[in-house]
C-alpha cells in the first residue's frame, strides 16, 4: 500500500498535502483499493467552505457510495475536473492525478489532528490484521 512521506492523513483515509496556506486533498491508496473501481465522484463547487471531518465529497463504485471527509477546514480554490470524465484516475494515481480539491486552509493548527506517514502506515497495518 502506497503511503508517501511529507503528507498528512485522516483515520477515514483522506490525505492532505500542505503547501503554504493551501492544501491539496484526496483519498489514499488504501481507500481506493478497498472501494474498488470508482465510477463517479461528486465534488464540491469552487468557493464552498469545507470543515475538518465533515463530508465534502462522495465517491461511488458499482455497488457502494462512500462519503469523503475533509482533512482540514477551509475554502475550495480548485477542483479536479478531470475526474468527471476519468474517475479511474483515483484508482490509478490516488496521490497525483487523482487529487480531489485544492483548498485555502483556514486554520493550520488543525494539522495536529492528522497523522503523518509513519503513523498512518501503522494505522492501516493494524486495520488489516
Amino acid at each position: 500500500m502506497l503511503v508517501p512521506d511529507n503528507i498528512f492523513f485522516t483515520k477515514d483515509h483522506e490525505w492532505a498535502k500542505i503547501e503554504g496556506d493551501e492544501a491539496i486533498i484526496g483519498i489514499t491508496d488504501f481507500a481506493q483499493s478497498s472501494l474498488g473501481d470508482i465510477t463517479f465522484i461528486d465534488l464540491p463547487k469552487i468557493g464552498e467552505a469545507l470543515k475538518q471531518s465533515a463530508v465534502y465529497a462522495t465517491v461511488e463504485s458499482v455497488k457502494a457510495a462512500s462519503d469523503v471527509y475533509s482533512p482540514l477546514s477551509g475554502k475550495v480554490l480548485r477542483v479536479n475536473n478531470d475526474l468527471a470524465l476519468h474517475p479511474e484516475l483515483v484508482n490509478k494515481s490516488p496521490y497525483e492525478s487523482g487529487w480531489f480539491v485544492v483548498m485555502k486552509i483556514a486554520d493550520l493548527a488543525e494539522k495536529n489532528n492528522l497523522m503523518d506517514a509513519k503513523k498512518y502506515k501503522d494505522y492501516i497495518e493494524n486495520l488489516s490484521k
Binding site: S61, K63, A65
Partner: peptide
C-alpha cells in the same frame, strides 16, 4: 448507476 438507490445508499 445503482449507487443512487436505497439498497446501497439507504437513508440517503
Amino acid at each position: 448507476l445503482q449507487a443512487r438507490e436505497q439498497h446501497i445508499r439507504r437513508e440517503r
